[in-house]
Design a protein around this nucleic acid. Structure first.
Lengths: 132, 132
DNA sequence: CTATCTGCAAACGTTTTGCATCTGT
DNA sequence: ACAGATGCAAAACGTTTGCAGATAG
Protein backbone atom coordinates (compact mmCIF):
# COMPACT_ATOMS: atom_id res chain seq x y z
CA UNK A 1 0.00 0.00 0.00
CA UNK A 2 1.13 3.50 -0.82
CA UNK A 3 0.73 4.97 2.67
CA UNK A 4 2.77 2.16 4.19
CA UNK A 5 5.73 2.78 1.90
CA UNK A 6 5.64 6.50 2.52
CA UNK A 7 6.25 5.91 6.19
CA UNK A 8 9.85 4.95 5.46
CA UNK A 9 10.05 2.29 8.11
CA UNK A 10 10.92 -1.39 8.01
CA UNK A 11 7.69 -3.14 7.14
CA UNK A 12 7.89 -6.21 9.31
CA UNK A 13 4.99 -8.67 9.32
CA UNK A 14 4.05 -7.49 12.83
CA UNK A 15 3.95 -3.87 11.76
CA UNK A 16 1.89 -4.73 8.73
CA UNK A 17 -0.59 -6.55 10.94
CA UNK A 18 -0.83 -3.53 13.24
CA UNK A 19 -1.24 -1.14 10.32
CA UNK A 20 -3.86 -3.37 8.71
CA UNK A 21 -5.76 -3.58 11.95
CA UNK A 22 -5.72 0.18 12.37
CA UNK A 23 -6.74 0.68 8.74
CA UNK A 24 -9.70 -1.68 9.11
CA UNK A 25 -10.81 -0.69 12.61
CA UNK A 26 -11.62 2.97 12.66
CA UNK A 27 -13.28 2.76 16.06
CA UNK A 28 -10.19 4.35 17.67
CA UNK A 29 -8.76 1.24 19.34
CA UNK A 30 -6.51 1.22 22.38
CA UNK A 31 -3.10 -0.44 22.53
CA UNK A 32 -4.72 -3.42 24.19
CA UNK A 33 -7.38 -3.71 21.47
CA UNK A 34 -4.61 -3.77 18.89
CA UNK A 35 -2.50 -6.21 20.88
CA UNK A 36 -5.35 -8.68 21.34
CA UNK A 37 -6.26 -8.57 17.66
CA UNK A 38 -2.79 -8.96 16.19
CA UNK A 39 -1.85 -11.61 18.74
CA UNK A 40 -4.29 -13.91 16.97
CA UNK A 41 -2.14 -13.72 13.84
CA UNK A 42 1.17 -13.55 15.72
CA UNK A 43 0.93 -15.49 18.96
CA UNK A 44 4.40 -14.29 19.95
CA UNK A 45 3.40 -10.64 19.58
CA UNK A 46 4.31 -8.58 22.62
CA UNK A 47 3.06 -5.30 24.02
CA UNK A 48 6.54 -3.90 23.50
CA UNK A 49 6.18 -4.36 19.77
CA UNK A 50 2.74 -2.80 19.74
CA UNK A 51 3.92 0.23 21.68
CA UNK A 52 7.17 0.49 19.72
CA UNK A 53 5.26 0.41 16.47
CA UNK A 54 2.68 2.93 17.63
CA UNK A 55 5.45 5.25 18.78
CA UNK A 56 7.21 4.94 15.44
CA UNK A 57 4.01 5.51 13.50
CA UNK A 58 3.22 8.56 15.63
CA UNK A 59 6.65 10.05 14.93
CA UNK A 60 6.27 9.42 11.22
CA UNK A 61 2.85 11.01 11.26
CA UNK A 62 1.17 7.81 10.14
CA UNK A 63 -1.37 7.77 12.97
CA UNK A 64 -2.86 10.10 15.59
CA UNK A 65 -3.12 9.66 19.31
CA UNK A 66 -6.44 10.53 20.91
CA UNK A 67 -6.73 11.95 24.43
CA UNK A 68 -10.42 11.22 24.67
CA UNK A 69 -10.20 8.64 27.43
CA UNK A 70 -8.38 9.38 30.67
CA UNK A 71 -5.83 6.75 31.55
CA UNK A 72 -5.84 5.02 28.18
CA UNK A 73 -4.56 6.19 24.85
CA UNK A 74 -6.53 5.57 21.69
CA UNK A 75 -5.21 5.56 18.16
CA UNK A 76 -6.54 6.81 14.87
CA UNK A 77 -5.33 5.64 11.47
CA UNK A 78 -7.00 8.65 9.91
CA UNK A 79 -4.65 11.60 10.14
CA UNK A 80 -6.77 13.96 8.07
CA UNK A 81 -8.01 16.76 10.34
CA UNK A 82 -11.30 15.88 11.96
CA UNK A 83 -13.17 16.09 15.23
CA UNK A 84 -15.11 13.68 17.40
CA UNK A 85 -18.43 13.36 19.12
CA UNK A 86 -18.46 10.98 22.06
CA UNK A 87 -21.41 9.34 23.79
CA UNK A 88 -20.94 9.90 27.52
CA UNK A 89 -22.81 6.68 28.26
CA UNK A 90 -21.41 4.02 25.92
CA UNK A 91 -18.26 5.92 24.87
CA UNK A 92 -19.06 5.47 21.21
CA UNK A 93 -16.94 7.83 19.11
CA UNK A 94 -18.13 9.23 15.80
CA UNK A 95 -15.85 11.11 13.41
CA UNK A 96 -16.79 14.56 12.26
CA UNK A 97 -15.18 15.93 9.12
CA UNK A 98 -15.74 19.66 9.32
CA UNK A 99 -13.15 22.38 9.03
CA UNK A 100 -14.36 24.83 11.64
CA UNK A 101 -12.93 28.32 11.62
CA UNK A 102 -12.82 29.24 15.28
CA UNK A 103 -11.59 32.77 15.95
CA UNK A 104 -9.12 33.37 18.76
CA UNK A 105 -9.07 36.63 20.72
CA UNK A 106 -6.16 38.98 20.10
CA UNK A 107 -4.61 38.46 23.50
CA UNK A 108 -4.22 34.78 22.61
CA UNK A 109 -2.87 35.24 19.07
CA UNK A 110 -0.32 37.66 20.50
CA UNK A 111 0.87 35.00 22.92
CA UNK A 112 0.47 31.81 20.86
CA UNK A 113 1.23 30.71 17.35
CA UNK A 114 -1.67 28.37 16.58
CA UNK A 115 -0.76 25.00 15.08
CA UNK A 116 -3.99 23.04 15.24
CA UNK A 117 -7.16 22.47 17.19
CA UNK A 118 -9.58 19.70 18.05
CA UNK A 119 -13.19 19.98 19.04
CA UNK A 120 -14.73 17.29 21.17
CA UNK A 121 -18.48 17.12 21.41
CA UNK A 122 -20.13 15.16 24.19
CA UNK A 123 -23.67 13.88 24.23
CA UNK A 124 -25.86 10.84 24.43
CA UNK A 125 -26.34 8.68 21.38
CA UNK A 126 -29.74 7.52 20.22
CA UNK A 127 -29.31 4.02 21.63
CA UNK A 128 -28.32 5.21 25.09
CA UNK A 129 -31.06 7.84 25.17
CA UNK A 130 -33.64 5.16 24.33
CA UNK A 131 -32.80 2.93 27.27
CA UNK A 132 -33.40 6.08 29.37
CA UNK B 1 -17.34 29.69 51.35
CA UNK B 2 -20.58 29.37 49.47
CA UNK B 3 -19.36 26.94 46.80
CA UNK B 4 -17.99 24.59 49.42
CA UNK B 5 -21.27 24.33 51.27
CA UNK B 6 -23.21 23.76 48.08
CA UNK B 7 -21.21 20.62 47.45
CA UNK B 8 -23.08 18.85 50.24
CA UNK B 9 -20.12 16.85 51.41
CA UNK B 10 -18.40 16.53 54.75
CA UNK B 11 -15.95 19.39 54.87
CA UNK B 12 -12.99 17.79 56.55
CA UNK B 13 -9.81 19.80 57.03
CA UNK B 14 -8.11 17.73 54.34
CA UNK B 15 -10.87 18.41 51.86
CA UNK B 16 -10.79 22.10 52.65
CA UNK B 17 -7.04 22.14 52.02
CA UNK B 18 -7.54 20.42 48.67
CA UNK B 19 -10.36 22.77 47.71
CA UNK B 20 -8.34 25.82 48.76
CA UNK B 21 -5.37 24.63 46.76
CA UNK B 22 -7.50 24.09 43.68
CA UNK B 23 -9.18 27.47 44.14
CA UNK B 24 -5.82 29.25 44.37
CA UNK B 25 -3.92 27.28 41.74
CA UNK B 26 -5.69 27.60 38.45
CA UNK B 27 -2.79 26.10 36.52
CA UNK B 28 -4.65 22.80 36.17
CA UNK B 29 -2.66 20.77 38.70
CA UNK B 30 -2.31 17.00 38.69
CA UNK B 31 -3.14 14.75 41.65
CA UNK B 32 0.53 14.70 42.54
CA UNK B 33 0.76 18.49 42.48
CA UNK B 34 -2.18 18.64 44.85
CA UNK B 35 -0.81 15.90 47.08
CA UNK B 36 2.60 17.53 47.43
CA UNK B 37 1.07 20.89 48.27
CA UNK B 38 -1.48 19.75 50.83
CA UNK B 39 0.99 17.34 52.44
CA UNK B 40 2.85 20.40 53.70
CA UNK B 41 -0.17 21.33 55.80
CA UNK B 42 -1.18 17.73 56.58
CA UNK B 43 1.89 15.51 56.79
CA UNK B 44 -0.32 12.45 57.18
CA UNK B 45 -2.19 13.22 53.95
CA UNK B 46 -2.32 10.23 51.64
CA UNK B 47 -2.86 9.82 47.92
CA UNK B 48 -6.00 7.86 48.72
CA UNK B 49 -7.54 10.93 50.32
CA UNK B 50 -6.54 13.13 47.41
CA UNK B 51 -8.06 10.75 44.90
CA UNK B 52 -11.12 10.08 47.02
CA UNK B 53 -11.73 13.79 47.37
CA UNK B 54 -11.19 14.49 43.68
CA UNK B 55 -13.59 11.69 42.79
CA UNK B 56 -16.20 13.08 45.17
CA UNK B 57 -15.76 16.60 43.88
CA UNK B 58 -16.07 15.36 40.30
CA UNK B 59 -19.31 13.57 41.09
CA UNK B 60 -20.71 16.67 42.81
CA UNK B 61 -19.72 18.82 39.84
CA UNK B 62 -17.37 20.90 41.95
CA UNK B 63 -14.37 20.42 39.67
CA UNK B 64 -13.56 19.33 36.14
CA UNK B 65 -11.15 16.69 34.93
CA UNK B 66 -8.95 17.61 31.98
CA UNK B 67 -7.88 15.06 29.37
CA UNK B 68 -5.13 17.26 28.02
CA UNK B 69 -2.23 15.13 29.14
CA UNK B 70 -2.06 11.43 28.31
CA UNK B 71 -1.29 9.27 31.30
CA UNK B 72 -1.94 11.96 33.88
CA UNK B 73 -5.18 13.62 34.83
CA UNK B 74 -5.35 17.32 35.53
CA UNK B 75 -8.00 19.12 37.52
CA UNK B 76 -9.79 22.43 37.14
CA UNK B 77 -11.59 24.25 39.94
CA UNK B 78 -13.31 26.40 37.36
CA UNK B 79 -16.40 24.56 36.13
CA UNK B 80 -17.77 27.43 34.07
CA UNK B 81 -17.61 26.44 30.41
CA UNK B 82 -14.31 27.36 28.84
CA UNK B 83 -11.66 26.07 26.48
CA UNK B 84 -7.89 25.75 26.56
CA UNK B 85 -4.90 26.57 24.46
CA UNK B 86 -1.84 24.43 25.16
CA UNK B 87 1.78 25.05 24.27
CA UNK B 88 3.08 21.88 22.64
CA UNK B 89 6.60 22.63 23.90
CA UNK B 90 6.25 23.64 27.56
CA UNK B 91 2.68 22.34 28.09
CA UNK B 92 1.54 25.69 29.45
CA UNK B 93 -2.26 25.84 29.49
CA UNK B 94 -4.18 29.09 29.08
CA UNK B 95 -7.91 29.39 29.70
CA UNK B 96 -10.14 30.73 26.99
CA UNK B 97 -13.56 32.06 27.93
CA UNK B 98 -15.48 32.14 24.70
CA UNK B 99 -18.85 30.63 24.02
CA UNK B 100 -18.38 29.30 20.52
CA UNK B 101 -21.43 28.30 18.56
CA UNK B 102 -20.20 25.36 16.51
CA UNK B 103 -22.84 23.93 14.18
CA UNK B 104 -23.23 20.16 13.91
CA UNK B 105 -24.34 18.48 10.69
CA UNK B 106 -27.84 17.03 10.62
CA UNK B 107 -26.68 13.42 10.53
CA UNK B 108 -25.01 14.03 13.88
CA UNK B 109 -27.87 15.88 15.56
CA UNK B 110 -30.18 13.07 14.46
CA UNK B 111 -27.92 10.55 16.21
CA UNK B 112 -26.71 12.52 19.22
CA UNK B 113 -28.23 14.80 21.80
CA UNK B 114 -25.46 17.33 22.40
CA UNK B 115 -24.58 18.04 26.03
CA UNK B 116 -21.38 20.04 25.82
CA UNK B 117 -18.19 20.56 23.87
CA UNK B 118 -14.59 21.53 24.44
CA UNK B 119 -12.15 23.04 22.01
CA UNK B 120 -8.45 22.47 22.50
CA UNK B 121 -6.08 24.69 20.64
CA UNK B 122 -2.44 23.69 20.27
CA UNK B 123 0.41 25.98 19.45
CA UNK B 124 3.73 27.36 20.61
CA UNK B 125 3.80 30.10 23.20
CA UNK B 126 5.90 33.21 22.82
CA UNK B 127 8.62 31.98 25.20
CA UNK B 128 9.05 28.65 23.45
CA UNK B 129 9.04 30.27 20.02
CA UNK B 130 11.77 32.67 21.13
CA UNK B 131 14.23 29.97 22.14
CA UNK B 132 13.75 28.68 18.57
C1' DC C 1 25.90 -7.10 6.37
C1' DT C 2 24.05 -4.17 9.62
C1' DA C 3 20.84 -0.95 11.42
C1' DT C 4 16.82 -1.77 13.22
C1' DC C 5 13.03 -4.60 15.10
C1' DT C 6 11.06 -8.29 18.15
C1' DG C 7 9.78 -10.36 22.41
C1' DC C 8 10.45 -11.30 27.13
C1' DA C 9 10.38 -9.73 31.73
C1' DA C 10 11.12 -6.39 34.85
C1' DA C 11 10.27 -1.54 36.13
C1' DC C 12 7.71 2.56 36.02
C1' DG C 13 4.19 6.27 37.11
C1' DT C 14 -0.51 6.93 38.01
C1' DT C 15 -4.65 5.49 39.99
C1' DT C 16 -7.54 2.23 42.69
C1' DT C 17 -8.67 -0.76 46.46
C1' DG C 18 -9.34 -3.10 51.18
C1' DC C 19 -9.59 -2.27 55.58
C1' DA C 20 -9.05 -0.62 60.33
C1' DT C 21 -9.49 3.69 62.55
C1' DC C 22 -11.26 8.20 63.06
C1' DT C 23 -14.51 12.34 62.62
C1' DG C 24 -18.05 15.88 60.81
C1' DT C 25 -22.65 16.54 61.07
C1' DA D 1 -24.32 7.86 66.91
C1' DC D 2 -23.11 6.71 62.65
C1' DA D 3 -22.52 7.44 57.72
C1' DG D 4 -18.89 8.39 55.66
C1' DA D 5 -13.84 10.10 55.59
C1' DT D 6 -8.83 9.17 56.47
C1' DG D 7 -4.41 6.85 55.88
C1' DC D 8 -1.65 3.00 55.07
C1' DA D 9 0.04 -0.50 52.17
C1' DA D 10 -0.76 -3.48 48.53
C1' DA D 11 -2.38 -4.12 44.03
C1' DA D 12 -3.99 -2.84 39.55
C1' DC D 13 -3.45 -0.65 35.30
C1' DG D 14 -1.41 1.24 31.13
C1' DT D 15 2.99 2.16 29.47
C1' DT D 16 8.14 2.11 29.09
C1' DT D 17 12.63 0.08 29.23
C1' DG D 18 16.94 -3.06 28.78
C1' DC D 19 18.67 -6.39 26.37
C1' DA D 20 19.71 -10.72 23.68
C1' DG D 21 18.51 -12.71 19.52
C1' DA D 22 16.23 -12.20 14.94
C1' DT D 23 15.36 -9.94 10.39
C1' DA D 24 14.22 -6.39 6.56
C1' DG D 25 16.47 -3.78 3.31
Amino acid sequence: MEKYRQLNIKLTPQRLAILDYLRDNTNHPSAEDIFKAVKKKFPTMSFATVYNTLETLLNKGGIHELKIETGKKRYDYDVTPHHHIICIKCRKIVDLYKDYKIPLPDEITREFELINKTVEFYGTCRNCKKRH
